[in-house]
Nucleic acid binder design. Structure first.
Lengths: 134, 134
DNA sequence: GTGCACCCTGGAGCGGGCTCCAGGGTCAAG
DNA sequence: CTTGACCCTGGAGCCCGCTCCAGGGTGCAC
C-alpha cells in the first residue's frame, strides 16, 4: 500500500497531479486509511505508466480516459483503439506539416538577413512581415 | 478612417480580437470619435498584417510585441531580429522532433495492430502502453 | 512532547489567444 | 421615429495540464 507521495515518486509526478487525475476520472478514487489518506496498490503504478506512455504518443488526458475505458470494457475490440491511434497520427502529421512550413519560412528569412549590422528599417525579416497582404 | 468592425473585416479577425490586441499592447489605442468609437488608419491594417505574418512563423503575441518594439526603435539593429528568428526556429525544430518521435511510435503500434478483430485484452497498442516501466 | 514531513479539502491561478456576455450608447436607412 | 446594425466598457469563461495555496489534520523520529 502506497501513500500518495510514494506513488507520485514512483510515477515521477507530484501528489497534486494524482489528485488532479482522480478528479478528472483518469484514476479510480483509491481506498482510504482511517485518517483519510489515499492508499494505492501496484495496479495504480501500472495505470499511471499507461497514462504516461499514451501522453508520450500525443494523446490528451481526455483521449486517454477513452483509451482506459476501452481497456476495461470487455466488448471493446482492438480496432477501436487502432482507429484512435490512426486519428492521432493524422493530427500529429498535420501539426508537423504546419510547423515545418514555419521553419521553412524562417530559414528563408534568416538567410536573407545575413548582414547583422543592417539598420532596423531595412531588416529583411521585418520587411517580409510587413509585406503585401495576400 | 475605419471603425473597428471594418478594420476587423479587412484583417480577417473579430473586433473582440482587436480590442484584445490593444489591451495586450500589440496595437496602439487609436484616435476616437466624439462618441468614443475607435477610428483606425491604413497603417493599422499593415500592423495587423505584420502580426499575422509573425504568428504564421510561430511567434507568440508576447514575442510579436518585442518584434514590434524593435521595429519602432531607431537604435535597434537587424541582428536582434535575426537572433529572435533563429531562437524560434530552434524551438520549432525541437517541437517537430518530439512530435516526429510520437508519430514513429504510433506508426509502429498501428502496424502491430493490424488484426482489427482482436479482443481488447490482447491489443498490442494497449499492451505497449502498459508495458514495463523504464 | 515537539518538530517536521507528510496528508487532506476546496478553490484559485497560469499561459496563450482569444471569445462571449450584460448593459448600455450611436448611427443611418426607410 | 423606429429599427437594426454597429460601437462602448468591464469582466468572465474556455481549453489543457497542471501547480500552488490556505488552513487544517496525521504519523513518526528523537
Amino acid at each position: 500500500m502506497l501513500t500518495i507521495g510514494k506513488l507520485a515518486a514512483r510515477a515521477h509526478v507530484t501528489p497534486d497531479t494524482l489528485r488532479y487525475y482522480e478528479r478528472e476520472g483518469l484514476i479510480e478514487p483509491p481506498e482510504k486509511s482511517a485518517a483519510g489518506y489515499r492508499l494505492y496498490g501496484d495496479d495504480d503504478v501500472v495505470r499511471l505508466h499507461f497514462i504516461r506512455q499514451a501522453q508520450d504518443c500525443g494523446f490528451t488526458l481526455a483521449e486517454i480516459r477513452t483509451l482506459l475505458s476501452l481497456r476495461s470494457r470487455e466488448a471493446a475490440c482492438c480496432g477501436e483503439v487502432r482507429a484512435l491511434a490512426v486519428a492521432k497520427n493524422r493530427q500529429l502529421a498535420a501539426r508537423i506539416k504546419a510547423m515545418r512550413a514555419m521553419t521553412r519560412t524562417l530559414d528563408r528569412l534568416i538567410a536573407a538577413c545575413d548582414d547583422t549590422g543592417r539598420p532596423i528599417d531595412r531588416c529583411p525579416i521585418l520587411s517580409a512581415f510587413n509585406g503585401t497582404p495576400r
